[in-house]
C-alpha cells in the first residue's frame, strides 16, 4: 500500500514520467490494436469469438524468435510469421472452426478456448517456459536529459504495425475479397444468394486474422517479451478493446488499443509488474460494466 502511494506521488512530482508511460503504452497499444482488429473481423464476419487470439500472437512471436535463433535477420520474422500463421489459421479453420460456426456461441467460445490451451502447451513443449525476446541492436534515443528513452526498435515496431494496418484496411476497402468479406459480415445469407462463396470468405477471414496476429506477435517479440502462457492475457486485451470500441468501428479499435496500452503501463507503474495480468482482466471487467450500464439505459442487456 505504501509503495502504491510512493509510486503515485512520483507521478505527480515528475510529470515527465507520465509522458514516458504514455509513450510506452501507446507503442505497445498499437500492437494490441492489431490483434483486436483481427478479433473484431472474425467476430463481425462469422460471429465467432476467438479465445485463441492471444495464442496466435504468441505463436507468431515464437516463429520470429526461432528464425533469429537460426541466424536470420529479425525483421524478416514479421512477414514469415504472417505467412506461417496464415497457414495455421487455415488449418484450424478447416478442422475446427468450420464445424462450430453454425452452432451456438458458447460452442465456438469453448472450442477456441480448448485450442488456446493446446497451443499454449505445444509452445511450452517446443520452446520451454522461459520468457524470450529478440534484441534488434538499434540504439536508443533520449529526450529530456535522458528521462525519456525511445528505443529505435520500438519505433520500427510501431511503424510496421501501422503499415500492416493500412495494408489490411486498403485491402478490405478495395479488393474483391475485401468487398465479399464486408458483404458477408452484413448478411451472410444475402451474400450467399448473390453468389458469394461464404465458406471461402470465412476461411480467408480466419486465416487473415491469424496472420495479422502472427505479424503482431513477431513485432511484439522485438519490442517486448513473450512466453507460452501469455496468450490468454493477449486474448483478454483483444476482448477489452473490441468490447470497448464495438464491432466495425476501426478508429474506435485503434483508440481503445492505444488507451488500453497506456492504462496498463500506468497500472504496472502504480501497482507493480506482478499485477499485469490482473490489470488486463480488471480492465475487461470495468469495460463490461461500463457497457452494461450503457445498455441498461437503453433498457437492454449486453448480449
Amino acid at each position: 500500500m505504501d509503495q502504491i502511494l510512493i509510486n503515485l506521488s512520483l507521478l505527480a512530482e515528475f510529470p515527465i514520467v507520465n509522458l514516458k508511460i504514455i509513450l510506452d503504452g501507446v507503442m505497445i497499444g498499437a500492437l494490441f490494436a492489431l490483434a483486436a482488429y483481427g478479433l473484431a473481423l472474425v467476430w463481425g464476419v462469422m460471429n465467432v469469438k476467438n479465445l485463441a487470439q492471444g495464442d496466435f500472437v504468441i505463436a507468431g512471436g515464437y516463429v520470429a524468435w526461432w528464425m533469429t535463433q537460426q541466424g536470420m535477420p529479425p525483421l524478416l520474422g514479421v512477414p514469415v510469421a504472417f505467412i506461417v500463421l496464415w497457414g495455421l489459421g487455415w488449418v484450424i479453420y478447416k478442422t475446427v472452426i468450420s464445424r462450430v460456426i453454425e452452432r451456438d456461441l458458447f460452442t465456438s467460445l469453448l472450442a477456441t478456448f480448448g485450442l488456446a490451451i493446446m497451443m499454449a502447451q505445444l509452445l511450452n513443449l517446443m520452446f520451454g517456459s522461459d520468457t524470450q525476446s529478440v534484441a534488434l541492436g538499434y540504439k536508443t534515443l533520449y529526450f529530456f536529459d535522458g528521462l525519456i528513452d525511445v528505443p529505435v526498435a520500438k519505433l520500427i515496431g510501431v511503424l510496421m504495425a501501422a503499415t500492416l494496418a493500412i495494408g489490411v484496411i486498403l485491402f478490405m476497402k478495395s479488393s474483391r475479397m475485401g468487398q465479399a468479406i464486408r458483404a458477408t459480415a452484413q448478411d451472410a445469407r444475402a451474400a450467399r444468394v448473390l453468389g458469394i462463396d461464404t465458406e471461402k470468405v470465412y476461411a480467408f477471414t480466419f486465416s487473415l486474422n491469424a496472420a495479422i496476429c502472427g505479424a503482431a506477435g513477431a513485432i511484439i517479440v522485438m519490442v517486448w517479451i513473450i512466453q507460452p502462457f501469455y496468450g490468454i492475457t493477449h486474448s483478454v486485451r483483444a476482448f477489452v478493446i473490441v468490447t470497448a470500441a464495438g464491432l466495425g468501428n476501426l478508429p474506435g479499435v485503434i483508440a481503445a488499443g492505444l488507451g488500453i496500452g497506456a492504462l496498463e503501463q500506468y497500472g504496472a507503474h502504480i501497482f507493480g509488474i506482478g499485477y499485469q495480468q490482473a490489470i488486463a482482466v480488471l480492465l475487461l471487467i470495468s469495460v463490461l460494466l461500463y457497457r452494461l450500464i450503457q445498455q441498461r439505459r437503453l433498457r437492454q442487456s449486453l448480449q
Binding site: 469469438k49 479465445l51 456461441l105 458458447f106 467460445l109 469453448l110 490468454i232 483478454v236 476482448f239 468490447t243 495480468q277 490482473a278 482482466v281 480488471l282 475487461l284 471487467i285 463490461l288 452494461l292 445498455q295 441498461r296 442487456s301 449486453l302 448480449q303
Partner: peptide, 18 residues
C-alpha cells in the same frame, strides 16, 4: 448476470483469472 451469452462466459473467466 447483466451479461448474456458469450459475454457472461468471458466475464466470469475474467473474474476467475483476476
Amino acid at each position: 448476470f447483466g451479461l448474456r451469452g458469450p459475454y457472461f462466459a468471458i466475464g466470469t473467466l475474467g473474474v476467475a483469472i483476476a
